[in-house]
Simulated scan of single mutants.
Amino acid sequence: MNLHDFYFDLPEELIAQDPLEDRSSSRMLVLDKKTGERQHKIFKDVIDYLNPGDCLVLNNTRVLPARLIGAKEGTGAKIEVLLLKRKQDNVWETLVKPGKKARPGARIVFGDNLLVGEVIDVVEEGNRLIRFEYEGIFEEVLDQLGEMPLPPYITHQLKDKERYQTVYAKHNGSAAAPTAGLHFTKELLKKIQEKGIKIANVTLHVGLGTFRPVKVENILDHHMHSEFYSIEEEDAKCINDTKQAGGRIISVGTTSTRTLESVADENGMVRAGSGWTEIFIYPGYQFKVIDGLITNFHLPESTLLMLVSALAGREHILEAYQEAVKERYRFFSFGDAMLII
């Protein structure tokens, strides 16, 4: 399978730069994964496609304000640090720009010495390990100094940090939002539960590997970055009980999907626990757990586009994307939604 098989032409003006005021008023393209039939709806209509006894699975990760702007000790040179992964208590794997100013031993000062980082090593792909010094609680210092790490295709400033969080975000750790969940409001989730649809949670801390471009022509040569997941006993039971009773598992986002498919046995039963996943889902993959997926519109030639193509078929997905472009849907993180069912 070649990378170019997943290309489509996307006009730049369709990349959403700002979130809508009402989360659930995004447009939603509904795709029948078997027939390729399409319908155009508003996101709050999603409740009409969920049946009593189904289970909606949410990723309750919370995005860290992981973008820090500091100055190199001694020279005052501006350095941008993006927190990727906590390695130990005060040591983080980071992405640093410009890298040449952040060799081992370099110290970076943030916010009038509230936070100081020392580069201790250079690891794969030029990422830096940084040990941080601070007083108090790291997350509180980060809340004070950090900015939301919006994807590079969003150039507008975000007025409200919480708009890049889902309304059910709980566990700190992501470098990016699980954006399919941004369409839900608390009111809509309440209505969904009142209709008899169960809600289960998983946690997958989204890394920037999700957004890294695929650089190999043969997609089978692509290596996924590992991301930390966890699933609680009660959530695993809720999902397994739904499957055994004949209900459907509707995954909210590619991150929830990757978590479920990582922890499932060959019968589609999921196990509680935590770990790291590098699962790469592309056409030919046989899904063990999920029956449907709520997702956003993804970048051309991305691993996320490959995942949705595995669920609904590459031809159906590319036809739906062509129609979405023609109908002027909004793409990517703050864009419109797609329901594949």
Rank of each mutant, 00 (worst) to 15 (best):
K159Y: 06
D160H: 14
D160T: 13
K161D: 14
E162C: 11
E162V: 08
E162P: 13
R163P: 05
R163C: 00
Y164S: 09
Y164E: 06
Y164F: 12
Y164K: 05
Y164T: 03
Y164M: 09
Q165K: 09
Q165N: 09
T166R: 04
V167P: 01
V167W: 04
Y168D: 03
A169S: 13
K170L: 14
K170T: 15
K170G: 08
K170D: 13
K170E: 11
H171Y: 14
H171A: 14
H171F: 12
H171G: 04
N172E: 12
G173N: 00
G173C: 05
G173H: 09
S174V: 07
A175Q: 07
A175M: 00
A176V: 02
A176E: 03
A177G: 04
P178H: 01
P178V: 05
T179Y: 01
T179Q: 04
A180F: 00
A180C: 07
A180Q: 03
G181N: 00
G181D: 03
L182H: 01
L182F: 07
H183P: 07
H183A: 06
F184E: 07
T185V: 11
K186W: 01
E187A: 14
E187K: 14
L188G: 05
L189P: 01
K190A: 03
K190F: 00
K190T: 00
K190G: 00
K190P: 04
K191Q: 14
K191M: 08
K191E: 12
K191C: 05
I192V: 13
E194N: 13
E194D: 15
E194R: 12
E194S: 12
K195V: 01
G196R: 03
K198G: 06
K198L: 12
K198V: 01
K198T: 01
I199G: 02
A200W: 02
A200E: 09
A200Y: 07
A200K: 00
V202W: 06
V202D: 02
V202G: 05
V202R: 02
T203E: 06
T203A: 08
L204M: 07
L204H: 05
H205S: 06
H205D: 05
H205F: 02
H205C: 01
V206Y: 02
G207Y: 05
L208I: 12
L208F: 11
G209R: 06
G209V: 01
G209H: 03
G209E: 00
T210R: 10
T210I: 12
F211N: 03
F211S: 01
F211M: 10
R212A: 14
R212V: 09
R212P: 02
R212F: 08
P213N: 09
P213E: 09
P213F: 08
V214A: 03
V214W: 02
V214N: 00
K215N: 14
K215I: 12
K215P: 01
V216H: 03
V216N: 08
E217C: 11
E217P: 02
I219T: 07
I219H: 08
L220I: 13
L220S: 15
L220G: 13
D221C: 05
H222V: 07
M224G: 02
H225A: 12
H225S: 10
S226N: 11
E227S: 02
E227A: 04
E227P: 10
F228E: 10
F228Y: 15
Y229M: 05
Y229F: 15
Y229E: 00
S230C: 13
S230Y: 10
I231N: 06
I231T: 12
I231C: 15
I231P: 02
I231K: 06
I231W: 03
I231S: 07
E233Q: 13
E233V: 11
E233R: 10
E234M: 10
